[in-house]
């Protein structure tokens, strides 16, 4: 299984660093970044696409009621709220809660439970389907989304979805990177590339 990635956002550096060192006891997961600034949260979450976001509600955009909605953009994300306040659960929906007063074992048990839920399929070990291979071939040949849609009689929207999945599975974003992959796997030959 791939390692699950975790972001921690809190104002206090003792909390951030303390929590990170507690979470080092978890297998199969990794704290990839600590965030100390409210303004950066959205951007970093979108850029790094963590599996789990542990965040102090004070770091959420103001007036935010459904915390998860703010960060979900098609990708899966488990949200854990981190606070010293007791009645947090009543106010905001989340997948888990950590209180500043919780002991190490309580925190680790809760985290393990979330990790076990199996909501994290191994993003990178899935092989691409033959449908996706076909799309990839067309991308590598330098066709635009519209051209691919026309040639394969599917909607542009479908092409875009396939592209997203291909990128996620292979870990390659750029067209030139995808082209190299296609050549290496004999989907196209080198001299077909413009």
């Amino acid at each position: 299984m791939a390692r699950s990635t975790i972001l921690i956002a809190d104002n206090s550096c003792m909390i951030r660093k303390g929590l990170r060192s507690i979470l080092q006891n978890l297998e199969n997961s990794e704290v990839i970044q600590l965030i100390d600034n409210k303004e950066d949260v959205c951007e970093i979450v979108h850029k790094r696409k963590p599996d789990i976001l542990i965040i102090n509600p004070d770091m959420l955009p103001s007036g935010c009621l459904d915390a998860k909605k703010e960060f979900l953009n098609g990708s899966k994300l488990s949200l854990i709220l981190l606070s010293d306040k007791k009645n947090l659960k009543n106010n905001l929906k989340a997948d888990g809660y950590i209180n500043y007063m919780d002991g190490q074992n309580t925190i680790l048990d809760m985290m393990q439970e979330i990790l076990n839920k199996g909501s994290f399929p191994d993003k990178n070990s899935e092989t691409i389907s033959s449908r996706e291979k076909n799309i990839l071939k067309h991308i590598a040949l330098g066709l635009t989304n519209k051209e691919i849609a026309d040639q394969l009689f599917i909607s542009i929207h479908t092409v875009v979805t396939h592209r997203k999945n291909i990128t996620q599975k292979l870990g390659i974003k750029s067209v030139s990177g995808l082209t190299v992959y296609a050549i290496l796997h004999n989907l196209i030959s080198m001299d077909e590339v413009k």
Binding site: G171, K173, S174, S176, G177, V180, Y181, L184, H185
Partner: peptide, 13 residues
């Protein structure tokens, strides 16, 4: 972005 792709290709593929 492209730099990350190059690393991925060299490491994985």
């Amino acid at each position: 972005e492209k730099l990350m792709d190059l690393k991925t290709i060299m490491i994985k593929y």
